[in-house]
Design a binder for these strands. Structure first.
Lengths: 334, 334
DNA sequence: GTGAAAGCGCTAACAA
DNA sequence: TTGTTAGCGCTTTCAC
């Protein structure tokens, strides 16, 4: 057996296919009795609308594309869930992909979304995708940057002030008496990383006598954090920093595993540690983690709202929404 | 400006649209020069194939639908990533949704996937979706159950022996001297939960003098685990269990927060704790968590393989793949 | 090796 | 209020 189409429904309900389409899309203009009859026929045949055909006709789909930096990061999971919920309230679905911070994966998803003619794209970029997004916008697919601002403000964005966040974290470490601070971060092409580092630098520069060492890793994962921690354990004790600001909580948890659990380095006594994102597991880690919290759900919801507005009216000016982060102090730094 | 179509490409390359379609789908049958000319034209126009039109013609999409029980559970994140990777190797993409253990969300995704005419469906069911899956299979959309077997074996499944896992966990607790064991789990309609409980019961029954208390929660989340933990803290010390087997690690981490961090109950001395899934954060939690590990990536990969085979050949007999879980002992129970 | 043409299922404009 | 019809972009025979 194969799927039934409007034609089958029309035949069974003894109406034209145009009427079937109308009860699907504008039931208010068709008489209640007819609606009833058609609906019944649909149920009898378990008719399911063919979205591809609808989309081919109207030109775009009822889906939004979302590309996050990492599937394993609960922060992005929360953003995604919030976006899905918000989109669902207006009948849209979200197709989520994650780039794992890799440019070719990012590019692959953009192509997929383009082939799918999604209504719009939400993205935390890795590579320089702005030119491509611009082309896509010219062809009717708008985009909103998530968790990162566009430098030239040519796209709307919903983000959190990462410079302020970095500054918040490092200021806190300095205030609690730390002087030899290390920033452990990922690839600097990732704006979130470079901004958090910038904020850290500003805070350090404001306090004479404070040094900031920068440790750059390949990715923002627990594994990489662990690797970095193992390298630190290898150092002679007096060559180690007395505080670490990790670019995200995954990294911080990896550091915790290597420094505290394997290396038996006292946290925070020997080394204080601050993470970023305040994921669900930060408060329950070996040493509860001080972290910079971002309003993840709010980011996802706002981004969807702006995107759908721009999809409806492409002439809208790009908007930059910037939320402020918040420091949550726990045992790892006090 | 609007998207260009095969027609535009054909015009620019001075060939027919049939030829354009051929270079897209069977380049080997068209002359190299023509391929070259058409490819060039595509690039000039930045042509992107309209997937909806392709799909309308061929009858199904190049996407697989995946419904997991929880977006916030790293176990399912890993299954999802593995499925995406596996699907990508054969040119398929995965549309992932999570039911959050809610029947109506599950049903919504099934409808979406049906409208999208996905090639097949991977699902960890909440409600009784078997009849519906059967209808969908009759219409050409096969399904594979993930992380759960179908009782009547009418669908293929890729799962882990949850009864064995539950037994493994509780046997370990008993061997380490515990007697008053509590099972903290979610809704019993979720097969994973009821199977793990069954295994726990079997292990308890095999040891006279061991009691098993069952605490049922609304969902398998950190929040719910925390609520359960708070209730336990309220009890007089001698009315508390001396060991807890939590149906997953999220629950276990919530319990840890309430019992250990807020309630100052010694883990494992007063209460030993075992979780399930061995998520990335289990080893780095306040008290590193003993957990039952499942081969998450393997589950995702295998499920995709079987699904695609069944999509190609609907006459295939359903297969049941059952992996064995593994106990990872850490500080929370020893 | 290439071209012409039918038709997948749907929506929307227009006619009745 | 309902019916008729064109056509969205693509793939796929079937001729040539």
């Amino acid at each position: 057996m194969v799927s039934s189409s409007v034609k089958d429904v029309a035949a069974l309900a003894r109406v034209s296919i145009g009427t079937v389409s109308n009860v699907l899309n504008r039931p208010e203009i068709v008489s209640p009795e007819t609606v009833e009859r058609v609906t019944l026929a649909m149920e009898k045949l378990s008719y399911v609308r063919n979205e591809a055909a609808r989309q081919l006709r109207v030109g775009h789909s009822h889906a939004l594309g979302l590309i996050t930096l990492s599937g394993g990061n609960p922060f992005f999971t929360e953003v995604t869930t919030a976006a899905e919920d918000e989109a669902a309230t207006v009948g849209y679905s979200v197709i989520a992909g994650n780039s794992d911070e890799k440019k070719d994966r990012e590019s692959g998803y953009l192509t997929l979304f383009e082939e799918l003619r999604v209504r719009g794209i939400l993205i935390s970029p890795v590579g320089n995708v702005i030119p491509r997004l611009r082309r896509m916008r010219d062809r009717g697919i708008p985009a909103v940057l998530v968790d990162r601002m566009s430098k030239d403000m040519s796209f709307s964005s919903v983000s959190v002030d990462d410079v302020a966040g970095g500054s918040l974290a490092v200021s806190h470490l300095i205030e609690s008496g730390r002087r030899r601070i290390a920033f452990v971060g990922g690839p600097s092409e990732i704006r979130q990383v470079s901004d958090r580092l910038l904020g850290a630098r500003q805070a350090a520069a404001a306090h004479p006598g404070v040094t900031l060492e920068v440790i750059t890793l390949a990715a923002l994962t627990v594994q990489e954090g662990k690797r970095a921690g193992e390298a630190l354990v290898e150092r002679p004790a007096d060559a180690r920093p007395d505080a670490i600001f990790a670019a995200n909580d995954l990294l911080a948890i990896g550091l915790l595993q290597a420094l505290y659990m394997q290396g038996r380095i006292a946290i925070p006594d020997e080394i204080a540690l601050v993470g970023y994102d305040d994921i669900l597991f930060a408060s329950a880690s070996v040493v509860p983690l001080t972290s910079v919290r971002q309003p993840s759900r709010l980011i996802g919801e706002t981004a969807v709202q702006i995107l759908l507005e721009e999809a409806d009216d492409p002439t809208l000016e790009p908007r930059q929404i910037l939320y402020q982060p918040e420091l949550v102090v726990r045992a790892s730094s006090s």
